[in-house]
Structures are given as C-alpha cells and as structure tokens.
Design a protein around this nucleic acid. Structure first.
Length: 254
DNA sequence: ATGGCGCGCGCAGCGCGA
C-alpha cells in the first residue's frame, strides 16, 4: 500500500500535474492540501476517471484538503471536533483498514503575530484530538503540510531561518509532542540524503539552489511504522513548468 | 537576501503563502 501527501497550491492549476503523477507514481491513497477551490468546483469526475475516489473539504481562495483513494473512503470526518473554525484544514477517512488524517497546518506568518498564536492553538487542539484518535485507531497515518521544519537538518540555512516561523521552538515543541504520542516521522525511519526538502520558495531560484524546507510529513502509528518499507520525497513534479512550491512525499507499507 | 514568485480575485493591485 502506497500513501502520499502533496500540497498542490491550487488544484485547478495543478490538476494535470496531479493526474500525470497519479499515473506514474501509482499511489493507493493521496492527501492533498491547498486546493483553493469550493467543493462545487472539485474535479471529482476527472479523478474518478483515472481511478480515484475522493473526499474533500474546500473553500474559495484559501486552504482546502482532500483524500483520494483507489479503495472506498469510509467514516469521513472534517475538521478537528473541538476546534471549530472556518478554515478547511483537516479531513480524515478510513481506507483499507487504515485511518488516514490529512492536514494543512496554519502558516503562522510571523512569530508573535495573531496567526502564529492561532497556529499554536491549532496544534494544541490537534495534539489532543490525535491522542484520542490513536486510542480508537491502531493503524493510523497523519499526512500533510505541517508547516514546521522540526530540526535544523530540515532547513537549508538554519542561521538564516533562526527565530522565524516554521523553526521557532514552540512550533518544534508541537511537532515533538506529536512524536511523543507514539507517531513516527516515516522519513527518518530510513537513511536519507542530506538536505532533503519538500518545499522551495518560488523566488530566488530556490529550487535550483536547493534552498528549501522539509515541512511535509507522513507520520505513522507504531503498528503502521512496523509495516513501512520506504519513505521518499519525489522531486520530479517540482521540476515541471508552473509547479507547486511543494512536492509529494510517499511511503510504502507492506 | 527581507524580496525578486505564484496563487486567487477580478480588472488593479493586494493579501497570502513559507
């Protein structure tokens, strides 16, 4: 079973990239973020035509999350139950016995800003919810754009980023709190190249300079981590014309 | 190196992302 996450930065613009990638990568489950479209505009039929069922929670212009799967998606839940908010950042569903949670974490804008405070509140609510979810679902995967670079090795230039959002200590503490629930960062279960990133700024030819961050993750419960045989970042879609600024992360489970 | 990009909205230029 192959699970993937990809922040597409507008599904409307990236639909062709997505369907091409589904064809070449052959994932069983894909979590998408930053759809930037209303549910009535979600390309359900186009995705069904290439073999994927979908559940989605979108809104105009901002945010928006979806799960695609080749098997039926059951017990769909949108949002964090105890954190009611208009932002569409969370969707969950069960596929082939695996509880799949798709997340688009708040950006946080700048340390100390209102949006930063909201980001930390969102993470506090997420942590409590996932703690509960892990008692209900043995086989649980959390996939998405978490907007935190957990360690300095996940940052192209830690000195440049020092004290910025995505790397601040309270954000990193929230990431570690997810690991403390028993979730594993699947990427770090395996040997990886140095300077492996999942996002690169559109500006300053950042991709060519590999000036990126690793902020997209697949976290696995212990039962799923035991089944995990690989985790990789697929940089190919970032090299296309008009790419998303993020690229897919993929795990394989036995 | 402090923004140069790319998106949505909507028709000019701004908010936002990370």
């Amino acid at each position: 079973m192959k699970l993937a996450t990809w922040n597409v930065n507008s599904l409307k613009i990236r639909l062709q990239h997505l369907t091409d990638w589904l064809h070449s990568a052959q994932p069983d489950v894909v979590c998408l973020q930053e759809l930037k479209l209303e549910d009535v505009k979600f390309p359900r039929d186009e995705l069904a035509a290439v073999g994927y069922a979908s559940v989605f929670s979108g809104q105009k212009t901002y945010n928006g999350v979806a799960i695609l799967a080749r098997s039926p998606l059951n017990d769909v839940q949108m949002g964090i139950p105890a954190f009611v908010h208009e932002h569409k950042r969370v969707i969950a569903a069960t596929v082939d016995g695996v509880r799949v949670i798709c997340l688009y974490a708040p950006n946080g804008q700048a340390v100390g800003s209102e949006k930063y405070v909201y980001k930390l509140q969102w993470y506090a609510a997420l942590r409590e919810w996932l703690k509960d979810e892990l008692t209900r679902h043995h086989q649980l995967a959390v996939l998405g754009d978490l907007n935190i670079a957990p360690e300095d090795r996940d940052v192209h230039d830690p000195k440049l980023w020092e004290g910025q959002t995505h790397v601040s200590e309270p954000e990193r503490a929230e990431f570690r709190a997810l690991l403390d629930l028993g979730l594993k960062d699947s990427f770090r279960l395996f040997e990886q190249a140095e300077k492996s990133f999942s996002w690169w700024d559109y500006r300053m030819v950042a991709f060519r300079r590999n000036a990126g961050l690793r902020i997209d993750f697949i976290l696995l419960s212990e039962a799923l981590a035991a089944r995990c045989t690989s985790c990789a970042i697929d940089k190919a879609p970032r090299k296309l014309e008009r790419p998303s600024d993020h690229t897919p992360v993929v795990v394989e489970l036995s």
